[in-house]
Design a protein around this nucleic acid. Structure first.
Length: 921
RNA sequence: GGGGACGUGGCGGAAUUGGCAGACGCGCAUGACUUAGGAUCAUGUGACGCAAGUCGUGGGGGUUCAAGUCCCCCCGUCCCCACCA
């Protein structure tokens, strides 16, 4: 009986059965430990791509694994449904964003169901639903009430293409472009809403309560950018105060001039009449300059003297005050004391404009001289030219001079952050309206909570310019002031969609709850998220915002009701939203090579493998192996393409454009190509490059289990890598083999003869070793080695099947165990085979196999005998061999004797755990 | 300029954290079966060598009985931040 594995026949059937039986409904069960697994929710862009599969199916495998290990697992899914693409599609196709969005959601939900993932769809949350954004607005009001939201005119980043302002986090790269569309941003002076995320700077830089990847922690800490230093107040000649932030108060005596950002408010008053024209011109030029130009680090320093002076509080000296665009208004206090002797930028500036340089930190060696220094000295040393502080090590002086400044009433220790408050206003339609009303009499008036949600009107006209249609919707804008009843105007900006995604883990708990953003009973049981997974690209955006949100909600008292329902002994849920995080990598496009010349014919390589190399003119290549090597080496080392010729049947000569020639004698390359550069044509997938892998087509061709299995097997999950359309065949073979192994009739080996005990023990040993590898692998996100372990077990079973072991009860146990171990990774085939071998309940409700270290323990080991670290012999020995025995056997080996050549061993090292002996001569 | 990650066969990647380098898979080679094969089965597959053997984890040094793994110096790739005071 051979019934071929046909995934299409079984997968939809099981998906329907699981849905019918409510297998993945997660319901509170206080008798079981909970596990809240969450993977980043998708934006409903239209179709699921392979990246979604790569992100979601391994997460699903781990959630299933947790479930089989006795956890009550919640693994929800939803859609981050507000956002610009919907609005752009609306403009382009004359289609309402809601229609576009919800149609996409319907399609993508269906595509996700084809993954066979255990998503609990009864908890689906969609951020564009009024019942969702009602609470997004409610949170805004809580922030407003608690002084965490404020409105301010500020110079903000504006994307001219998307026609909206952006948060600092959404401006990327050297050219400061819009994260969504790539257009360089411009600065605009606008009244906007901000959240006081900076209030939480220190807390956000503290990751001690969560288990997050080091990479994310580092990026977030850099983003918060805490620096410790001091505020020091100088006085101008007119007795105006001019306060600077510095991380080097120890160099105060070396401050020989000051620099203000061109936008600094004091510029107005400090500038002298004869300098005013020059200053005004410089300020105007600075405004005109793009951020890119201003931020270029290698730029020649520019600046203008204001004509004004300030007094260095340490030296009493009169020092000039300049303006220069290398000082930014947005960081610190927008003003610096310049210490040219000990700072790169100040040094360059001083040299250019002939300003005095005074060394105040002296390293060991020749005394520094400010007039002759050719570069600033940044390192450690002792203070000089610093009055009573002379001779103190600079590291101590930071504290001492700060204390002294404070005594003088001239400043204090201070901390500065790079983190900016979060700008959440967006001048676009498809987002959650900001629930604010402006009244001429009452000012800024929040919409009363019982009037939420502020609904987006449907009857809007989109213009090609992308301008917010709410601005042209009088009925939406004109409202009565909730306070005085008079004529008032509704805010037309909507909220940054990162606001919606900052709290979705809460809405999943009770997506239809209408008394609060979430049901405290659900929250008390499920929170916090135990395992979050998603891409690293959100490190300083979503992952920052959601942590801020949680802390802000805590301070607004939103978790109070939940806390009363929780065991106070449990760790708190209101400091951090997600206890653990794991970032998967990305799947890149399949590598493609171009044309090159082989055997004087033109050849084409669509891939890096020789298999698909063929001559355009139909001629034959040299041996495929040789060509294979050439292609590999070319792609590994060459920058530009080259000619490849065969000189005879086997040898290949490669000519690089610069006439370098090297030989490839049949197999392998000779040396001499080291200077060729690595070059591999691997790119991100994109429609325009035509290298997109469509998961639907793969599912249709191979089935969901194969796609899941391949995605987990072919890459390290945290790294991802280029797609390989041939590699998937390995997973196809694996599942075909498993299918045949479980279902096909077995020949009775030797009638009913009992299998030798040793063989049975060997089989069970392999099974238990696999249990351990799979358990550890799934726990630790090592999906690729997990699949490898399952393949090995299959290989072992295939071999055992030809022996009497296949008649032993241990065989059936092995099959059962293998299916249970496969269930999280390939849920459909596992379920089908589980049912076919006679089980009536779902394998996914089955208990995870228990690892028994005694069974897994090797009975015999191979002693590895090394001489001076080189393996010279292998000797079979019992696992419990004593050290003396092992050494004796090693020294008795004839191989050892041969290599010792009569020399006496100087030392014999025995490593018990590894069965290794090293004889040192 | 600052911070971080990485570099292992033709390819994706293993290596229980200092202990047999190359698991598992792709590809490839040879053979079998086939009208055929992008199917299946068997065997082989780091390099060099007929072999004994030698060499091998980007390069160079070091620590150690033992280094892909630890330390130092280079080279290269990628990511983040960036006139941050």
């Amino acid at each position: 009986m051979i019934d071929k594995y046909n995934p299409q026949a079984i997968e939809s059937r099981w998906q329907a059965a699981w849905e019918r039986d409510g297998l993945y409904r997660a319901v509170i069960d206080s008798a079981r430990p909970k596990h809240y697994a969450m993977t980043m929710l998708p934006y409903p862009s239209g179709n699921l791509h392979i990246g979604h599969w790569f992100a979601m199916t391994p997460s699903d495998a781990r959630a299933r694994f947790k479930r089989m290990n006795g956890y009550n697992v919640l693994f929800p899914m939803g859609f981050d449904a507000f956002g610009l693409p919907a609005e752009n599609a609306a403009i382009k196709h004359k289609l309402h964003p809601a229609k576009w969005t919800y149609e996409n959601i319907d399609r993508m939900r269906g595509q996700m169901k084809s993954m066979g993932a255990m998503f609990d769809w009864s908890r689906e949350a969609i951020s564009a639903d009024p019942e969702y954004y009602r609470w997004t607005q409610w949170f805004f009001l809580q922030f407003f009430k608690n002084d965490l939201a404020y409105r301010q005119r500020a110079s903000v980043d504006f994307c001219p293409h998307c026609n909206t302002t952006l948060a600092r986090e959404q401006v990327w790269g050297d050219d400061r472009h819009c994260e969504r569309c790539g257009t360089p941003v411009i600065k605009k002076d606008l009244e906007q809403w901000f959240f006081r995320i900076t209030k939480y700077a220190d807390e956000l830089a503290d990751h001690s309560k969560i288990d997050w990847p080091e990479r994310v922690v580092t990026m977030q800490n850099n983003w918060v950018g805490r620096s410790e230093g001091a505020h020091i107040t100088f006085h101008t000649e007119d007795e105006d105060e001019l306060t600077v932030f510095t991380t080097r108060p120890d160099t105060l005596f070396g401050a020989t001039f000051m620099v203000l950002a061109p936008e600094h408010p004091l510029v107005e008053t400090i500038t002298t009449p004869d300098q005013r024209a020059a200053v005004e011109e410089y300020r105007a030029a600075a405004v005109r300059q793009t951020e890119i130009e201003r931020a270029a680090t290698d730029k020649e320093k520019t600046g203008v003297f204001t004509g004004g002076y300030a007094i260095n509080p340490a030296t009493g000296e009169k020092i000039p005050v300049w303006i220069a665009d290398y000082v930014m208004m947005g960081y610190g206090l927008g003003a610096i004391m310049a210490v040219p002797a000990h700072d790169d930028r100040d040094f360059a500036f001083a040299r250019k404009f002939g300003l005095p340089i005074r060394a105040v930190i002296q390293p060991e060696g020749d005394p520094l001289n400010g007039d002759t220094m050719i570069e600033p000295y940044i390192g450690e040393g002792v203070l000089i030219n610093s009055g009573k502080f002379d001779g103190i090590p600079a590291t101590d002086a930071i504290e001492k001079i700060t204390a002294w400044v404070e005594e003088q009433g001239r400043g204090h220790a201070a901390v500065s952050y790079k983190l900016r408050d979060w700008l959440i206003s967006r001048q676009r339609y498809w987002g959650a309206p900001i629930p604010i009303i402006y009244c001429d009499k009452c000012g800024i008036v929040p919409v009363p909570e019982d009037q939420l949600p502020v609904l987006l009107p449907d009857d809007v006209q989109f213009s090609d310019s992308g301008e917010n249609p709410l601005k042209f919707h009088p009925a939406y804008q004109h409202v009565a002031c909730p306070n005085c009843g008079g004529d008032a105007r509704r805010e037309t900006d909507t909220m940054d969609t990162f606001m919606c995604s900052s709290w979705y883990q809460l809405r999943y708990l009770s997506p239809h709850y209408d008394k609060a953003p979430f049901d405290p009973v659900e929250a008390a049981y499920w929170l916090p998220v135990d395992q979050y997974t998603g891409g690293i690209e959100h490190a300083t955006m979503h992952l920052m915002y959601t942590r801020f949100f949680t802390k802000a909600l805590r301070d607004c008292g939103v978790f109070a009701a939940t806390e009363t329902l929780r065991d106070p002994a449990l760790p708190s849920i209101d400091d951090e939203p997600m206890s653990a995080l794991f970032n998967q990598g990305i799947i890149l496009g399949e590598p493609r090579a171009g044309h090159f010349i082989v055997a004087e014919g033109e050849w084409e390589a669509e891939r890096l493998n020789a298999h698909s190399i063929r001559a355009i003119d139909g001629s034959e290549a040299a041996t495929e192996t040789a060509i294979n090597r050439v292609v590999g080496e070319i792609w590994k080392r060459a920058e530009t393409l080259l000619d490849v010729h065969t000189t005879d049947g086997r040898d290949v000569t490669v000519e690089v454009f610069d006439d370098t020639t090297f030989e490839i004698p049949g197999v392998g390359m000779n040396a001499g190509v080291e200077d060729l550069r690595h070059h591999l044509d691997v790119e991100k997938m994109s429609k325009s490059k035509g290298n997109v892998i469509d998961p639907d087509a793969l599912v249709e061709k191979y089935g969901a289990d194969v796609v899941r299995g391949y995605l987990m097997f072919a890459f390290r999950w945290e790294l991802g890598g280029p797609w390989d359309s041939q590699g998937i065949q390995g997973v196809v073979r694996w599942l075909n083999d498993v299918w045949a192994l479980v279902l096909n009739d077995r020949p009775k080996i030797g009638g009913d003869t009992a299998a030798p005990d040793a063989d049975v023990r060997a089989l069970r040993r392999k099974v238990h070793q696999t249990i351990k590898r799979v358990t550890d692998g799934l726990e630790g996100f090592g999906f690729n080695t997990t699949v490898a372990a399952l393949m090995e077990l299959k290989n072992t079973l295939q071999a055992a099947r030809r022996t009497p072991v296949a008649n032993d009860p241990a065989w059936n146990e092995a099959i059962r165990t293998m299916l249970l171990l496969m269930a999280p990774i390939t849920p459909h085939i596992a379920e089908e085979l589980w049912s076919q071998i006679g089980n009536t309940t779902s394998i996914h409700l089955g208990a995870w196999p228990i690892y028994d270290a005694d069974i897994a323990k090797e009975e015999a080991i191979t002693l590895i005998v090394q001489i001076n670290g080189k393996v010279r012999d292998r000797i079979a020995a019992p696992a419990d061999i004593s050290e003396e025995d092992a050494k004796a056997r090693a020294l008795a080996s004839t191989e050892v004797a041969r290599h010792l050549n009569g020399d006496a061993p100087k030392k014999v090292v025995y490593v018990a755990g590894r069965g290794m002996i090293n004889i040192v001569v």
